[in-house]
């Protein structure tokens, strides 16, 4: 597998299986450790599910494009979709310090992405959401 790779998925939940198969090969090729593998896989699953659920709201024929690169021990992944405009960087995080009775059950996905990645950036360009995440895997 070369340093740069592109994966295109349809906007339906079942496509996560293709993402997982792709990641398995990517992790193997780049010899990533368990901690980095989990952080990347979890982040991508959360991002993908969010796009399918909220970005397309049941429309299954759209394409979500993932660009992968591993350079100088930094894995960079940009995710492009033409769904509803959504900037995960400006979304308020879930309350994770309150007592159990005050906790909300949802909202953990984006928090997991923000906590596990070393860098996130977002732009809305040509009616597309472009989210770029980076993970230092050294």
């Amino acid at each position: 597998m070369s340093a740069k790779k592109i994966l295109t998925l349809k906007s339906r939940f079942e496509e996560i299986k293709k993402l997982n198969r792709f990641l398995k090969e990517f992790f193997k090729y780049h010899s990533l450790d368990t901690r980095n593998k989990l952080a990347i896989q979890l982040s991508l699953e959360e991002i993908f599910n969010n796009i399918v659920m909220y970005g397309y709201q049941g429309e299954k024929q759209h394409e979500i494009v993932f660009h992968f690169e591993n350079k100088n021990n930094v894995v960079t992944i940009s995710i492009e979709d033409d769904g509803i405009s959504f900037n995960p960087l400006t979304r308020a995080g879930p309350e994770i310090t309150t007592p159990l009775q005050d906790r909300q059950v949802g909202g953990l996905g984006i928090h997991l992405v923000r906590s596990q990645m070393d860098h996130l950036s977002y732009q809305r360009k040509n009616n597309k959401n472009i989210l770029t995440i980076k993970k230092n895997v050294k």
């Binding site: 896989q41 959360e46 159990l100 906790r103 953990l108």
Partner: peptide, 19 residues
């Protein structure tokens, strides 16, 4: 081996229910 937000949500929901 792996848990993502829907699974975490189930555990949190269970804890709240039991409380």
């Amino acid at each position: 081996d792996y848990i993502s937000s829907p699974g975490l949500g189930v555990l949190l929901y269970t804890a709240k229910t039991l409380q």
